[in-house]
Design a protein around this nucleic acid. Structure first.
Lengths: 145, 145
DNA sequence: AATAATTGTAAGGTAAGCCTAACATTTTGT
DNA sequence: ACAAAATGTTAGGCTTACCTTACAATTATT
């Protein structure tokens, strides 16, 4: 089974749905529209697409939910987001808001491999604040596990 | 005078023109179309827009050139690209190709401030490979100059 | 110089992603 | 229960950025 790559826009919708479900029972189109600053009409349109791709269970005026693959996809995007934001905030020292905004865009386009290296670098940096240049070796060994 | 922010796409066109002019006398639409993997028709369309915005001097069947602001804009984008690529390649140890591809996308969306911090971090890391955590202080001082 | 090949442009089409306005449905308040 | 408010949907439009096809202009070849 091919791994589908969604557009940045649809990834944002999935992510928003997941986030809303973290602190609510239900997701309403209007919640998503507020989260993403788009019209309710745009939300309906996006939900139809996500439903066709089997990432959400959607029906007119019905309760919306994520499918298993929708949940999985959302978690992946969110994980990317958090890793990128963490690097910007904790390593580069950027403000929370700015780190978040940048991560929101980069999460959709960064490659798996570079993200993996970035994560490893952040981890290592946190573990060994005094010397970072053992990182290269660390990364090599980490890859060979 | 407001600083115009071009779309990612138009930034790509400007960048391509600049790059071609680095090793050619003239830029042809077909060169741009090859560099960006788009049709010649799309190039014509983009050139009309860039001409209207006064980033290129363009006229039907005439020699194309960058205006001063076009050149300035292209240099800025290219500089962003190089900084990001440098971090991915030299610090994270990614392959040249992958570093370049990722930089090509991120250059259009990263914020000035985070890029500045990334650049400083890369510089510092190169200067002090043994201890990186003086970076925070370094960055502060660097900002106050 | 005439023809062939290349390059540039115009016209018309497509898809994604957004919008507003109007209408349908559901929920809320009295 | 019923009117008012909120929410969801549809229809129609817009913009960006692509495309293909056909034609125009330029450049290269013989």
């Amino acid at each position: 089974m091919e791994k589908i790559k969604l557009s940045s826009s649809l990834e944002d919708y999935l992510e928003a749905i997941y986030n809303i479900l973290l602190h609510s029972e239900k997701v309403r189109a209007v919640d998503i529209s507020r989260e993403l600053n788009v019209s309710r009409a745009s939300v309906t349109e996006a939900l139809k697409k996500l439903d066709e791709l089997d990432f959400v269970n959607y029906g007119r005026y019905e309760t919306l939910s994520l499918t298993e693959s929708g949940k999985k996809y959302a978690v992946e995007v969110l994980s990317k987001h958090n890793h990128i934001q963490d690097f910007f905030e904790k390593i580069l020292g950027a403000e929370h808001e700015e780190a978040c905004e940048n991560a929101c865009k980069i999460e959709h386009i960064i490659s798996e491999n570079i993200l993996d290296r970035l994560v490893a670098f952040t981890e290592f940096t946190k573990l060994h604040p005094e010397k970072y240049n053992e990182f290269v070796q660390y990364y090599k060994e980490r890859r060979n596990q």
